[in-house]
Design a protein around this nucleic acid. Structure first.
Length: 422
RNA sequence: GUGGGAUUAGCUCAGUUGGUUAGAGCGCCAGAUUGUGGCUCUGGAGGCCGUGGGUUCGACUCCCAUAUCUCACCCCA
């Protein structure tokens, strides 16, 4: 019987996990720098959390959720994204009574039953933040600036930052009406998908890649022109703050988000490298979500970054970190008694924080040398009968062949450790 | 749900118009003076050629089905 990992899942093997760890550490560091604290929430929630949070009409809820009945007859769902669960936790734990803004970050896996392709998996990792309680546009800009900061620190060249405002429910309704009025006469010129979208979600027509549709929508009414006073002022405040912070962006009036909860500010960092998905990171404001999940009227904003997509981008830009553990010293041994000596020696070095290795697979002397070399160790020590009797042994550089050997007594562990630390 | 490409050793891949014991490189193990690595040389382990049918004297090769991987549509991080 041959088993393989379920479709859309993947094993992250040792040759990449170091890079992942480094990225995650950097993300956490940046978050803390901006005053965010980590939150860990359940991998699955009551299904209703996502139906209400993400939106009953979205593709995610309608056809992509891993939903199951638990043994107690409750409907549970593996989280398809992070925000809904964090908002639930915010409400349940009374965080609305804390000093605002409440700033949270998280590293999670999420699950969606989708067809797999580049940068899109059924189990995937997200790095995200949510900030609660700040209505004004400054925090919108701060979050975006934090992301730009993170990308720069991680060695990425400027990604394309696209921003937009999709207004509030009332001005969005105005725009939707205008859009339908505009598109309906051109219905025959739209592609089959878009004709259907016209009914369900006309905003999506603006997003279509079909040449014919693009032509039709060229002069279509733009959401930004339909913002009411408050939404308009908010968006202006947002872009002004980005200018003030020196964050480069461009306004893309066609950005639409696939989740129902977004209001006003939406943004994406996009790249050509991550397949046709494009979006490495997407987010926005969700002013009605806390209430939707039974909490008080508290505004929120957040984003989620696809970690797999981020790794693809790092690789494409040639800045993928690589740090495999490398011993400072490899201790080879000639015989059984020497092996025991090596075992003690290596352990004592490790107690002192020095990564060291010895032979664990019973290899011959010659093979131990190869292993030492392959391990990337900086120094080599060989222990045999002579060394045991003398109570001391030489260390030799494996990198520089001409370098003189240095002798250390077995009872001078501190001296050896000191030398290896250098 | 709909298309394109792929599936042969742990990895990357050859395999001629169907022909008998299926190959290479890398990796792994061992050896080339029983106290010394990188280079080189020699040897070894490791494949029901994704799975199931069919055509044929004969199938890795041709046909059908199916699974898996991958890319794309759709949607999203």
């Amino acid at each position: 019987m041959k088993f393989n990992a379920p479709k859309g899942t993947q094993d992250l093997l040792p040759d990449v996990t170091a890079a992942w760890q480094r990225v995650e550490r950097k993300f956490a560091d940046i978050c803390r720098l901006y005053g965010y604290e980590e939150i860990r929430v359940p991998t699955f929630e009551h299904t209703e959390i996502f139906q209400r949070g993400v939106g009953d009409t979205t593709d995610i809820v309608q056809k992509e959720m891993y939903t199951f009945e638990d043994l107690g007859g409750r409907s549970m769902t593996l989280r398809p994204e992070g925000t809904a669960g964090v908002v639930r936790s915010f409400v349940e734990n009374g965080m609305a009574s804390k000093a605002f803004p409440v700033k949270l970050y998280y590293l999670i896996t999420a699950f969606r039953y989708e067809n797999v392709q580049k940068g899109r998996y059924r189990e995937f990792h997200q790095l995200g933040v949510e900030a609660f309680g700040s209505e004004g546009p400054l925090i919108d800009a701060e979050i975006v600036a934090m992301l730009a900061h993170f990308f720069r620190e991680r060695g990425l060249k400027q990604l394309d930052l696209q921003v937009n405002s999709i207004g509030c429910p009332s001005c969005r309704a105005e725009h939707k009406k205008a859009l339908i009025d505009f598109l309906s006469p051109h219905k025959d010129e739209l592609c089959a998908d878009c004709r259907e979208r016209l009914e369900r979600n006309p905003l999506r027509v603006l997003d279509c890649k079909e040449e014919s549709c693009r032509k039709v929508t060229e002069d279509a009414p733009v959401m930004l022109d339909y913002l009411d006073e408050g939404c308009k002022a908010h968006f202006e405040g947002f872009t002004e703050a980005l200018d003030n912070l020196g964050v480069a962006y461009h306004i893309n009036p066609r950005i639409v988000r696939g989740l129902d909860y977004y209001t006003r500010t939406v943004f994406e960092f996009v790249s050509e490298n991550v397949g046709t998905q494009g979006t490495i990171c997407g987010g926005g404001r969700y002013n009605g979500l806390v209430q939707e999940l039974g909490g008080p009227e508290v505004p929120g904003i957040g984003f989620a970054m696809g970690e797999e997509r981020l790794m693809i981008e790092l690789e494409a830009q040639g800045v993928l970190p690589d740090e495999r553990p490398v011993p400072r010293l490899f201790v080879a041994s000639m015989d059984e008694a020497s092996l025991k000596k090596a075992q003690q020696l290596v352990q004592r070095l490790r107690y002192r924080g020095i990564p060291a290795e010895y032979e664990l697979c019973g290899r011959s002397m010659r093979a131990q040398m190869k292993q030492a070399d392959r391990s990337g160790a900086e120094y080599l020590m060989v222990i045999g009968q002579n060394e045991r009797e003398a109570g001391k042994a030489n260390i030799r550089s494996l990198r520089e062949r001409d370098k003189a050997e240095e002798c250390f007594a077995f009872d001078d562990m501190e001296g050896l450790a000191e030398r290896l630390r250098a």
